[in-house]
Design a protein around this nucleic acid. Sequence first.
DNA 1: GCGCGTGGTACGAAGCTTCGT
DNA 2: GACGAAGCTTCGTACCACGCG
Lengths: 329, 329
Amino acid sequence: MADVAALAGVSSQTVSRVVNNRSNVEEETRQRVLSAMRMLGYRPNTAARALVTGQFRALGLISFGLASFGNARTVDALTKAAQRAGYTVNMIAIESQTEQAVHEAFDQLTMQAVDGIVLIEAQILDTPALRLPPGVPVVMADGDVSHRHPMVDTDQVQGARLVTRHLLDLGHETVWHVAGPEDSYAAKRRAESWHATLKQAGAAVPGVLFGDWSAASGYEAGRVLARRPGVTAVFAANDQMALGVMRAMTEAGRRIPDDVSIAGFDDIEESAYLSPPLTTVRQDFDVVAERIVALMIDQIEAGAAPADTAYVAPELVVRQSTAPPPSRP
Amino acid sequence: MADVAALAGVSSQTVSRVVNNRSNVEEETRQRVLSAMRMLGYRPNTAARALVTGQFRALGLISFGLASFGNARTVDALTKAAQRAGYTVNMIAIESQTEQAVHEAFDQLTMQAVDGIVLIEAQILDTPALRLPPGVPVVMADGDVSHRHPMVDTDQVQGARLVTRHLLDLGHETVWHVAGPEDSYAAKRRAESWHATLKQAGAAVPGVLFGDWSAASGYEAGRVLARRPGVTAVFAANDQMALGVMRAMTEAGRRIPDDVSIAGFDDIEESAYLSPPLTTVRQDFDVVAERIVALMIDQIEAGAAPADTAYVAPELVVRQSTAPPPSRP
DNA sequence: GCGCGTGGTACGAAGCTTCGT
DNA sequence: GACGAAGCTTCGTACCACGCG
């Protein structure tokens, strides 16, 4: 900075004023400083600046990685929304859910230079003896309302109700469910809503099969379901598992949707191109991400009080993997 | 830190020594400091530390987002590899490829607190008037060897040769190609290798169709190919486009692999569960990521000279979407 | 006078504040 | 109102010095 000041023939304070867009600098001086900055390739030192201002213009992001498309889409949307707001995203992926690993990851991130933390899949908060550092704003995507932090998420309950009802309305006697992992709040809420919708409709509630969001786990569940003759409709808790179920059914010689209807959740781009195209619930990841970032920045910059939970409405997308059940002979 | 020192009855320097695990602190003092730290919930300030040490233990990552699974897998693997090395990843996704957007993203990141920058899809470097800040180590995934930075990538040439040859060996007269976007180095190398392999085998080289990595673009290309009667084998430059091609062929009434063989590239987890399961080229994203991070850290911590280009061998995975061509009537 | 455990002080790169001209 | 000079602030670390066996 001193070099820039010397080259432009001004003091370092004036350089600082130019960098921070203060008003009280004459246009000619400003240009002189600007060109000096360019000539020297000057970049303000983030560390020094952050030390003074206490802000990093960076958001921390904690998740279990990008293997699940839902996560990948959320992270993608979040990064872009943060970017539009002038923030970068500092990402931590937790590999294993051992307390040790979670703890280390947290220490690493909270020590890092972030102004706030976004949590995807907040069940990690349930690890005992794990506390977020005080004073750092936190927003959750997919958490439990019982937590003390604001949350923005797709309305999982409504989404699961939409698909389940869609399948019942087609004439299916009941709907089987391949759920996400038991410790996921999103999976739990989708399963509960599926359960409630069946009960409300007076349909039998079959046992839940659990997967881990992967196509492989959906395939395993699908093989189990394919062996049960009464299964005519399956709702998988995400599109990847739905894909696995479809594969297992096809291998077992059951046609989709003639013999069995299959629906997913997320609406990843690929779902429209499966064979057959998948009926699913569309989550608006972009809107969720926008809101999360907006909430964060409110807290960081305006010191606003943590806002409440916000739900974003999902949308049922009917394609060709669902149809009325085969007529009984 | 001063508070901790006061509570523990030592000087701030001793606190610093404890935090950094220096040896020359008596065990009793260390414990006293440690408990004071816990009581006050003390966390060292990264900014101040970085100001002194000049290191942030953070890597910058620039990409075009996570919509392409190849990218998502790379980013995922990179994050985890960085994490194992004790680094966090500061991610920037470039939304549009306008010079303006690229420039802003770069400014933002280079101003951020990172020790090095990883570039995925390095064509963005070709933007004129765009220069990386000097002194910051850069490693590229998917770049051109002509750049001055070290690069780690899957051996695209070998991968494309493997699939193309596989299809020719099955008896297909030639192989059509749905390439990735024209400005992608990975897409370019795959296309060139496909071209060279065909020529070497004395096969006709049909015109290339271009997509943008998305299933939708693969679908469009597939519709074009489905109208041409001579097409018996298609190599799509990634699995998502292969999925789109498959859908278009199926809609056109062409059976896979009986009428037409289709192969992809990447081997995303889902490819094994498509109908039919997709023949593809497996990229070892984890190894690529490990090497990238290792290269970065060499440069950052040991000040090692930028290493050369390293290629990671891919592997052909034959599944059920490829078969000999239909016999001519 | 050597090694060990400590404390004292300077320093890093910016920003802010208060005077000045 | 435009600018400069000086001094203080942020927080942790490097370097050197100190006392003690």
